[in-house]
Design a protein around this nucleic acid. Structure first.
Lengths: 211, 211
DNA sequence: TATATATCTTCACTCATTGCAACTTTACAT
DNA sequence: ATGTAAAGTTGCAATGAGTGAAGATATATA
């Protein structure tokens, strides 16, 4: 699992990281649209053409860790705990992913914030983010059905994933838009998940009218 | 609200419609990526530059009716019926929008199918569709909160909209992906809405295991 | 009809993205 | 160590989306 990375591999990783860092730095310094691929390449001292052998598009650099994150969530689903219900499993997977968002082991909380802001403020990045998340939802739904074939048919699995992720996403975004702090945003997302599990019908009812 | 359209207005509408029809026709005949703005413009006999005074991007033509559809849904929310609960209102709005999808008064069912397929098969169109839908969800959530300020706070409204729309969308897509007919897809979306209202917790339980 | 105004067109330009062929570097077997 | 294959880079040329600005045209209006 880790014999000899090899010079070629190491160089590739270094270049990739350099491209990511230069891109994100430039996007923040001068703005996404104002930054050209040529500038990014120049900052890393590679040819513009090379950029496209690492990333398929300018947008993609921003989501460099997406595939890894998606796979983590899929692994949670695949490693269903004995006796765990499909919904508990799904909630565990989404919660873990959410926790990552708010406490990324690699990057600082500030850089995560900045990246979120970047994505939210650039339409094409927002569209790309939604597209990636959408694809992930499909994969999650399939994985969930595969993990619990006797509990959920494919469409039910899709319903569950769509509802949970959809609720958490819009709740988080709205919360953030209202000026909430990261921990508050996270709490809003968690609450959204809980509400969705227990049923939206419970909303507007007696319970939570504290605010 | 309808005194004299005026020649200028009529011409504009005609040009717009011609651009839409030519675009959709060409996209299907030769494929989206293979069709250029120049070709579309030539087919309608306007300058390529003019295309961009009607649509902000090549993708946008495909969603020519989106804003209208979004406003219809928002109107439903704004016209809350006396005594209607927030959730009933939301469900009514989403159901109506869904019905439009499967029985568009203007276009034929086949052309609707073809457009759906076009969007699903072209990544950039899919991303655009998701982005538009996302924006609509935000507007719906705000409208819902405005319509029922005593029943839902903004984040709860977002949770509800995100869950319902998210569930319906992924369920419909999955159903369609499984080869379901349009009526079946519609049924899947409706069921997803019902499940989400009553709570995902009810999934995988005793009830619906007919398939 | 004359004038103001909304549209359309032309032209020039930037930039993302891609295909291709030549070139350089790393890996590897002898 | 040396030669060759494989992988990765680069330069070059093109395509096509999207934009800004100035001038030409058509429509509306007094």
């Amino acid at each position: 699992m880790s014999d000899a990375p090899g010079l070629r591999e190491r160089k590739k990783i270094r270049t990739r990281n350099a491209l990511i860092e230069a891109s994100l730095r430039l996007f923040e310094e001068k703005g996404y649209d104002e930054t050209t691929i040529a500038e990014i390449a120049a900052a890393v001292d590679v040819s513009p053409r090379t950029f496209f052998s690492y990333f398929t598009s300018k947008e993609d650099v921003v989501f460099f860790d997406h595939e890894m994150r998606a796979e983590e969530a899929l692994h949670v689903i695949a490693d269903r705990r004995p006796g765990e219900s499909a919904m508990d499993l799904l909630v565990r997977a989404v919660r873990q992913s959410l926790d990552r968002d708010f406490a990324d082991p690699d990057r600082s909380a500030e850089s995560a914030e900045r990246r979120t802001h970047l994505i939210e403020s650039v339409p094409s990045l927002q569209a790309r983010a939604l597209h990636l998340l959408f694809d992930t939802q499909r994969r999650l739904a399939r994985a969930l059905h595969d993990a619990c074939p006797d509990e959920l048919d494919p469409v039910e699995a899709a319903t569950a994933v769509g509802a949970i992720v959809g609720a958490a996403r819009l709740a988080a975004l709205t919360s953030r838009g209202l000026g909430a702090s990261p921990p508050e945003v996270r709490a809003a997302a968690r609450k959204a998940i809980d509400i969705t599990i227990s049923g939206l019908g419970s909303l507007g009812s007696p319970d939570d009218r504290p605010r």
